[in-house]
Amino acid sequence: MNTVSVVTLAKGRPDHLANVVLGLCRQVQPPAELIVAVMQDQLYVLPEAPFPIRQIVTTGGALPLAAARNAAARTATSDMLVFLDMDCIPAPDLVADYAAGLAELDGLLMGEVMYLPGGATRDGWNFDGFAAVAVRHSDRRGPPPAGIERCNDYRCFWSLNFAMRRATFLAAGGFDERYFGYGGEDTDFGKMLDGKGIAIAWMKGGLAYHQYHRHHMPPIHHLESVVRNAQLFEAKWGYRTMGHWLHAFRLLGLIDDVEGRPIRILRDPDADDLALTGQQSHQPYSNTTTVIRILEERARQRDAGREPGTAGEAQTAQAVA
């Protein structure tokens, strides 16, 4: 049997990482090891597990996500790699599903992700309880009805929960480590794989449950890194990525992104911006599409000479579509 290493990146949220370990302890096919690329000075205190857990400290700018994934992949010793976000609790079949999928397809496989509301992991948890309350993200497509389905648009790649054969990942060159902070490195990696003819595919199974944490969509709390990484992507590939986020930033008056010249940050996000984009505790995930609809409606009202309405928007912007 080919072995599977699970790799994850971690900064803060120790309870979330502990739940990842507990989820891996309940696998029908346990991983050979867990590699944690730690993006902070202090290592984690983690639950006991029936497999080795190795923590490696990765430094280099704020949130060196690309470098951390590469370092974890190089450290891993198994034939297959499962890349799992530290907020994602793996369902019992996740490792086995990916092992079977990668035996069939030498490419990148993306498993399922369901989102949990706040409080779902308090006072102990079980997978039946998760299944009863978890929801799918309205901005993300679901899995195929069965098996593996090729994705013909590299922009679909999302690093929250995916797997590759280790040799294929390393031969492809891994993530571009010039990206740091939030945004851009996933699309860059997907485009690179597409150019090399390496398949990107959805699969039924490989399910993980995303734990609630406070977030903003669009990610205005990562404004500077999104802008920097969008311009890095443009310099490399000839066009910008993260267009929906940049569109929202422009509607908010945060940036000037006229085509043909560098993006300018006009101001920092304020309390109203944070309220509009912030995820509420009862909402399993944050939602860029809903915020853009509100901002575009505000713009239409201004164009019509009316005062834009804002009452209740902060409470409704992130409602699940």
Rank of each mutant, 00 (worst) to 15 (best):
V113I: 15
W125S: 08
L109P: 06
D106I: 00
W125M: 06
G197Y: 03
M203H: 07
G119F: 08
F127V: 03
I198F: 05
F127R: 01
G107C: 00
M114G: 12
N126A: 13
D176K: 00
S138Q: 07
G107Q: 08
A103C: 12
E185C: 08
R178S: 14
E149W: 02
A120S: 14
G101T: 06
P144D: 02
P144F: 04
G181S: 03
E185Y: 08
G174Y: 10
A99T: 12
G173C: 06
C151F: 10
R155V: 05
M164I: 11
G173F: 13
A120H: 11
A171T: 12
A100V: 09
R136F: 13
S159Q: 14
Y115W: 14
G183M: 01
G118S: 15
L116F: 06
M114T: 10
L207S: 10
F189T: 09
C151N: 10
A208F: 03
A201G: 07
D176L: 04
P145E: 12
G101C: 09
W158A: 13
F180N: 15
C151A: 15
D176A: 09
R165D: 04
A99V: 12
L108C: 13
R166V: 11
Y182N: 13
G174R: 11
L108W: 07
P145N: 06
L193D: 05
K191T: 13
F127K: 05
G119N: 06
L193Q: 04
D153M: 05
E177P: 11
S159G: 14
A171Q: 13
M192S: 12
A103P: 00
A103H: 13
G129V: 01
T168G: 04
D153Y: 01
L170Q: 05
F180P: 10
E112N: 07
Y115V: 00
K191A: 15
G174D: 04
R155L: 11
W202A: 01
